[in-house]
Nucleic acid binder design. Sequence first.
DNA 1: CACCATTAGTTGACATTTCAACTATTCAGG
DNA 2: CCTGAATAGTTGAAATGTCAACTAATGGTG
Lengths: 163, 163
Amino acid sequence: MARRTMDAETRAARDDHSAIRLWLRMLATNRLVETRTRRMLQDRYATTLPRFDLMAQLERMPRGLKMGELSRRMMVTGGNVTGITDMLEDEGLVERVADPGDRRAWVVQLTPAGRRAFTAMAQEHERWIVESFAELSGREMSTMAALLARLKTHVRSLEERDT
Amino acid sequence: MARRTMDAETRAARDDHSAIRLWLRMLATNRLVETRTRRMLQDRYATTLPRFDLMAQLERMPRGLKMGELSRRMMVTGGNVTGITDMLEDEGLVERVADPGDRRAWVVQLTPAGRRAFTAMAQEHERWIVESFAELSGREMSTMAALLARLKTHVRSLEERDT
DNA sequence: CACCATTAGTTGACATTTCAACTATTCAGG
DNA sequence: CCTGAATAGTTGAAATGTCAACTAATGGTG
């Protein structure tokens, strides 16, 4: 393997325990795919991953989502959602609608322009992801998905224990 | 769903969908573990993940690392490394030493205080990670590590093709 | 009804991150 | 030795992200 492609996890592999090693490998892989996706969104659509992410959440829920729901689904803080929503609203891709049932809350929805922009990007995005994961067979993907599901549930339960 | 009767196209479509699903699950799991780690580093050591990450790189290489090497290993941009190093240097945990062989370059090293601080954190950090991954057996961890390794190599090769 | 803890969202301070532009140095050819 | 391309690192702008403090509205409970 070419030396210049050797990163942290490859080097640490020798002397660390398997949990640490696996975690570093997850981090590295994730960062690779994320970087690639981000660059492509930037180059072809002059947008960013968090904007795309927020729009993707909304696209799945045509009735819109409240700020707090976005925050939970995207797993980022409320303040962060406020900022990204502000910008998407300035760009006319998203709008805040008053929630009739709760005067504290907003319902965020895609505008028609936002929906158009998103569907264009989403197709290409899916191609990039499919291409990235084409190395793995369907069976291997479901093996990994199943392991991740258990891991996720477990970490979430640890999370609750701390609280 | 009888596998025998599934044609190539159907199978491809299913795999496409699973690639996206798997990617979203990887993102979510990663973010969960990261959030948990970050919060614990914050609460117990008043430090952050990127600072810890940089120090971890240095701890493995007692002779120090140049800025560019840190950048490559951490998979972040050079400007980012400059910023984090500045702060760790202000805190006295790290120092920039002139590279005798190249007057453009710095070699970054842990100070004795930095080494002390790191070893304290590292033990606890490893416990948190081991605890997080305790849901998976050793066999499952190596299955996942192997799949991730292939995925990583594949994405890296896509990366080079783009360049 | 009045109080008060909770919840929804925003704000401001600060850290992290990318990118592009910049300075300084190195290195390869002529 | 000179010159120009490449490399090491820093800087500044803009976006992202956390956290804690804040405002406003909700919803028990007495």
